[in-house]
Amino acid sequence: MKLVINGNDVQLDESVFTITDVMDHYHIDNKVVIVEHNGEIIDQSIYSKCTLADGDKIELVQFVGGG
């Protein structure tokens, strides 16, 4: 599947169908992550239900602490 993730064109494995699959693919397990799918912020409770299609645009924003 071809997606645009954080502004980059990427080709992902055929097993990627949902936002949860994308996060698993990139090993994102941060509980504080904001996901935008085609311009709409998606509630974390439906990541596994939000299906993707070729050409979809995904923005992943993680908050990182530090000092």
Rank of each mutant, 00 (worst) to 15 (best):
L60N: 03
K57I: 14
I58K: 01
T18V: 04
H27K: 15
C50E: 15
D43H: 12
G67S: 13
G67I: 12
S15D: 11
L60K: 09
D29K: 14
L60T: 00
H27V: 04
Q62H: 09
D54P: 12
N6V: 07
E59H: 10
G67H: 02
S45Y: 01
V64L: 14
E36K: 14
E14S: 13
V61W: 05
D56M: 03
S45Q: 10
G67C: 08
F17E: 10
Q11L: 12
G67F: 02
S15R: 10
D54A: 14
E40A: 14
L60H: 05
N6T: 11
H25R: 11
N38E: 02
V33A: 06
D29Y: 14
V10I: 10
G39C: 11
D29Q: 12
N8K: 15
I34C: 05
V35E: 00
I34A: 13
N30V: 05
I41T: 14
G7A: 08
D13F: 00
L60A: 05
T20K: 13
V10W: 04
H25N: 12
F17Q: 13
D29P: 00
I42C: 04
D9E: 15
V16K: 02
V16C: 09
Q62G: 07
C50Q: 15
I19T: 07
V32S: 11
D54H: 06
V33P: 11
G55Y: 06
T51F: 10
Q44V: 09
I42E: 06
K31N: 13
V32F: 04
V64Y: 10
E36D: 11
V33C: 07
V61F: 09
Q62M: 14
D24T: 11
I28W: 04
L12E: 02
Y26E: 06
V22I: 15
V33Q: 05
H25W: 02
S48I: 00
D43P: 05
C50M: 11
D43F: 03
V33N: 02
V10Y: 01
I5M: 06
I42Q: 02
L52Y: 07
D9H: 07
Q44G: 08
E36L: 10
